[in-house]
Design a binder for these strands. Sequence first.
RNA 1: CGGGGCGUAGCGCAGCCUGGUAGCGCAUCUGCUUUGGGAGCAGAGGGUCGCAAGUUCGAAUCUUGCCGCCCCGACCA
Length: 445
Amino acid sequence: MRLSRFFLPVLKETPADAQIVSHRLMLRAGMIRQQSAGIYSWLPLGFKVLKKIEQIVREEQNRAGAIELLMPTLQSADLWRESGRYDGYGKEMLRIVDRHERDLLYGPTNEEMITEIFRSYCRSYKDLPKNLYHIQWKFRDEIRPRFGVMRGREFLMKDAYSFDLDEAGARRAYNRMFVAYLNTFERMGLKAVPMRADTGPIGGDLSHEFIILAETGESEVFCDSALVDMGAPGLDVDFDGDLQPLVDARTSLYAATDEMHEAARFESEVPAERRLSARGIEVGHIFYFATKYSEPMKAVVTHPDGKDRPVHMGSYGVGVSRLLGAIIEAHHDEAGCIWPEEVAPFGVGIINLKTGDADTDAACAKAYDALTKAGKDPLLDDTDERPGGKFATMDLIGLPWQLVIGPRGLKEGKVEVKHRASGARHELSLEDAIARLAEGSLPRG
RNA sequence: CGGGGCGUAGCGCAGCCUGGUAGCGCAUCUGCUUUGGGAGCAGAGGGUCGCAAGUUCGAAUCUUGCCGCCCCGACCA
């Protein structure tokens, strides 16, 4: 993409309304525009990142055996009356009346609807297990939206729902999502720590929040630092195999948000040097809720013994739009965003220091074509802004690599490659720079 | 929903207390000079001062109501 043709409305000044760094940077980098409290338009740069995050989530769900579908944003109130949640959900559910005076709602979640779908088609134990998910916009009419996309009213969420014969099967489904989440967040450059969450009336140990650590996190968390250092299981995990050891290795270490924190246990279970007290952002939540919906909504299957029993369900959410904010909170500096390569809106930013200079323009065009062919999706700043402004914009939008090309360097046969995260610069010939960016072989430190 | 605050040009703000021709910086446009980390000079355009009533000869300014947004708290992916 050539910047002169792109739509990148960057702001030099910080908007007054934005309090936290991710919100400020998303506004300044021209990624989002607020349309109403907690409701945002996704401008091209932000939209590209959103789609990349969504795609990683999708790939890892698929790898773990979940099946994608798409349910509507609007739901009939009748479904929610069946589960008993219509009256219980409260004012954060947006209720709508259509022209026939029928009650609708803008879905805050989809347990009822997926249960309705499941029960309509699945009758036998032979249909199990199943895990169905979708990535769809949700609306929760939060009392006080804030922090930009981190706490919006409208948000993009991946929610998966598992259906199993019994609790043992549900646990296997739970473990698959547990592992898939670790891989998902690692691919985005995040260190996500699973923390035991409140299971509410269901009880048991099958509910975890996935928290990423960031100084500006919304809640205080406590964990064993070994958990943070452990890393994800990796993409070659066999999801058909026994995942329990992988899960146990993590759940056996102490990790809790402030609501679940037990100071005494923390101190007795975790050696002093590994006691990590930090702030975190919740980016995923998984839980097993047994027959909470299948029972009232009569989602039953016939077991081998010929008897009908309600299926055991779990649900697994990832805040896709929230992740943009979370990633920025985890990866930024004073100058702007620092995108991990997997989610960066463009792979390389090419800065033409003197647009209109024939040699520089030609060198930039050559780099642009070569990197485009190499699949690096470059963004070429071919505007006639001054160099200082171009550097500042490129740092702000946070592309992982910058290729700086100007007449002064070209005279000596050199261009400069800058690694955004480390600030490391390399002086290379144009050909070397192109080749090494194309193959990703430049040092990242 | 309780408490606090703010709505004046695209963005950031001053003016309001004490009513009298609507301002500043950035951005935008034109010209010239500049050009390796957010340039300089000269000029130009852009605002029914959130909306509506009221007080007044006269309202951005005072009064009332409404709307929107932000912050703190309780609540949440």
